Computed example of a mutant assay.
Amino acid sequence: MRFVLASASPARLAVLRAAGIEPSVIVSGVDEDAIIAGLTGAAPEQVTTALALAKAEAVVETAAGTGSAAVVVGCDSMLFIGGELVGKPGTAEVARKRWAAMAGRTGELITGHAVLRLDGAGGRVTATGSESTTVRFAEPSQQELDAYLGTGEPFQVAGGFTLDGLGGWFVQGIDGDPSSVIGISLPLTRRLLAEVGLTVVDFWPSRDG
């Protein structure tokens, strides 16, 4: 059975590889803004889970194209802070404003997950869920923030920071699952795989190669 990651995120790929899974990567290309626009009034967990499911469903046809069994995993992360749910800043200007609001405060990094098991004959079983982790942000100096924005790293990551990259210097601590902050919760993914009748060890490399 193939393990398909419906994400272009190198961080999610790195987490899975470090945990013994070598997935096939199929980028979904969904219009996240359009999906969010249709979820007015939804709870943050509902928004991230809906995005994760949309990503997974967008690659089902490609994943099932070989006629072989597969499991497709989609994820989406956003930061809930100050009563607002925010995603990727996109630009230096937006990232600077985000950090002005985040510095010295706490936020909830919420990652939605969707696991779709495909039997190779058109059948599908789906499990979804989300993981929330409290992130305590440090207060970078103006020099540090200018340098961080200059790297471009925060523009295309949820909330404008990373835990496993340069942004990790400016995270005071977390309460919860670190893998979820990076982009894919290993404990939650394990539970969702179990809901569709699979165990994570099914995807580990065998000892005999």
Rank of each mutant, 00 (worst) to 15 (best):
G112F: 01
I81Q: 14
D175H: 02
P154Q: 05
A69V: 10
A19I: 00
S68E: 15
A100F: 00
L145R: 12
H113E: 02
V196W: 05
R190G: 03
R124T: 12
E144M: 06
A58I: 07
G74P: 10
I36G: 00
L163R: 10
H113F: 05
P178K: 05
I36L: 01
D119T: 10
A11L: 00
L186G: 09
I26S: 03
R96E: 13
V72T: 03
G209R: 14
L13F: 02
P154G: 09
V4D: 01
G83K: 09
G168H: 05
V201L: 12
G209P: 06
A63V: 08
T48C: 15
S9T: 13
G159V: 10
R98E: 04
K88Y: 04
V196Q: 08
V60E: 12
E57L: 08
P154A: 10
V200N: 00
S7M: 03
V181A: 03
L166F: 11
E32R: 03
V201A: 13
V59T: 11
A18M: 11
A70V: 06
Q143T: 06
R117Q: 11
T49A: 13
A18E: 15
R191W: 02
V60M: 12
L109A: 04
L145Y: 13
A69Q: 15
S180E: 09
F80P: 02
D76S: 10
T126I: 15
S68Q: 15
D31Q: 07
S24I: 13
A158N: 11
P154N: 05
G168V: 06
V72Y: 05
L149E: 00
E45R: 14
T62P: 02
A42E: 14
E32T: 07
A54T: 05
G90R: 12
D202T: 06
T106C: 10
G176I: 02
L118V: 13
V115D: 09
A103H: 03
F203D: 04
V94L: 11
L5K: 03
A64G: 11
R98C: 04
D146V: 07
I81D: 04
R12P: 00
A52I: 07
E139P: 00
A63Y: 07
G150P: 08
